[in-house]
Amino acid sequence: MNDHDPQTAKLGSDKPRTQFGALCWRPVDHGVEILLVTSRDTGRWVIPKGWPIKDLGPDGSAAREAWEEAGVTGTLTDAPLGAFSYDKGIGPQRVPMPCVVMVYGLRVDQVADRFPERKQRRREWFSPTAAAERVAEPELQALLAGFTGA
Rank of each mutant, 00 (worst) to 15 (best):
S39N: 09
P48Y: 02
L36V: 03
S39Q: 10
M1L: 06
A66H: 06
R17Y: 10
A83E: 15
L56T: 07
V37M: 10
G43T: 04
D14H: 12
G50P: 07
V95E: 11
A83F: 10
L144A: 05
P98Q: 07
K88F: 04
F84Q: 04
L23S: 02
P116E: 01
Q7D: 12
V103S: 04
T42V: 09
K10F: 05
D41E: 13
E68M: 11
A130C: 02
T8C: 01
V37W: 03
D14W: 10
T148D: 07
A63G: 09
K15I: 15
R134T: 02
R114C: 01
A79W: 08
E69Q: 12
N2Q: 06
A62Y: 02
E65F: 09
A22T: 03
L144T: 07
P80Q: 08
Y86A: 02
V111Q: 05
G12L: 06
R94T: 05
D109C: 03
K119R: 13
R17D: 04
A142D: 08
V72P: 01
K54Q: 14
G105D: 06
Q19R: 15
S61C: 10
P98R: 08
M97E: 09
F126Y: 14
S61A: 13
R40I: 14
D14K: 14
D113T: 08
T18C: 10
I90D: 00
P48M: 04
G50R: 11
L140W: 08
G89M: 03
H4V: 13
R107F: 03
F84C: 03
R121K: 15
L11P: 01
V108R: 08
S127D: 03
G43W: 08
